[in-house]
């Protein structure tokens, strides 16, 4: 199939960006979206043009490195799927595809479609952990954990930190990302001692990074490749309020 791509090109963080239009031909429907971009880049290199920078790594939907706003939807039109697992058979011959980077003040563009998501790391560094120094652990079965809690914790922990929630949110809010971690650790007995300190520290860092606020539109859940529920955000709000009332 033949496609027309409108791709955001930007030299570096401070440079002005613009859209460039490219034609790609003879794209196989079996290709992944990123392989289609590989083909474009090979052709660009062979023509002596600077290839398009986009981030990717595991290409099996788990590392969270790939991003891309594909026709206005993070990770493209396929529900619960990262861009690397999106395949070209979801598109039609002759389609026009607009490809943009994640857009948020907290995610500055480094080049083309590559953005800096280190704000997420800084939020985790403030409290997205259980303090258990190596060597302190009791036996793994010392504290049984009810299966529903363990399952919910797992579902929240499935977050891959890709930033699609921020990209999808009309306010560029990181609430789903933060809430997923707050819930994951806050549900487990091991996470109780730091539960309220954690939520306070993480939410405050989230605010400091310049993310927007949650206005409950839930596009984050719709865009999340791991389909993490906004239920976690309610839980974070509750924990945060409790923490504030208790003076944490």
């Amino acid at each position: 199939m033949n496609l027309t791509l409108h791709i955001w090109r930007q030299e570096n963080t401070t440079a002005e960006g613009r859209f460039s239009t490219y034609r790609v031909e003879e794209i196989s429907p079996d290709m992944s979206f990123l392989e289609m971009l590989d083909v474009l880049n090979e052709r660009l290199i062979n023509k002596g043009e600077v290839p398009v920078e986009f981030e990717h790594d595991c290409r099996e939907g788990i590392c969270g490195t790939c991003s891309l706003m594909v026709n206005g939807v993070p990770h493209g039109p396929e529900k619960g799927t990262t861009t690397c697992q999106l395949h070209m058979r979801k598109f039609k011959d002759g389609d026009e595809i607009t490809i943009e980077p994640w857009r948020a003040k907290a995610f500055p563009v480094l080049k083309d479609l590559v953005v800096d998501r280190s704000a997420f790391d800084r939020i985790i560094q403030k409290g997205g952990y259980i303090s258990a120094n190596t060597g302190n652990a009791p036996d793994g079965n010392a504290i049984p954990i009810p299966k529903p809690d363990a399952d919910w914790a797992f579902e929240a922990a499935a977050c891959i930190g890709c930033g699609a929630c921020v990209a999808a949110c009309k306010n560029a809010s990181a609430s789903l990302f933060v809430a997923a971690k707050v819930t994951h650790l806050g549900l487990l007995p091991q996470g109780q001692p730091e539960r309220y300190l954690r939520v306070t520290a993480m939410v405050e860092q989230m605010d400091q990074e310049g993310f927007g606020s949650c206005t409950n539109t839930y596009d984050c859940e719709g865009a999340c490749p791991k389909q993490i529920s906004v239920r976690n955000i309610a839980r974070m709000n509750r924990d945060y309020l409790k923490a504030k009332i208790m003076g944490n």
Binding site: H6, F19, M69, N71, G72, V73, T98, E100, R103, A104, K105, A106, A168, K170, N171, A172, S173, G210, F211, G212, S213, T215, T217, Y218, D219, E221, G222, A223
Partner: peptide, 18 residues
Amino acid sequence: RNKEARPVQYKAKKPIVS
């Protein structure tokens, strides 16, 4: 605050479930 959080708008942006 929310306007500030996204200084550059998308060219194409579609609602998903909102």
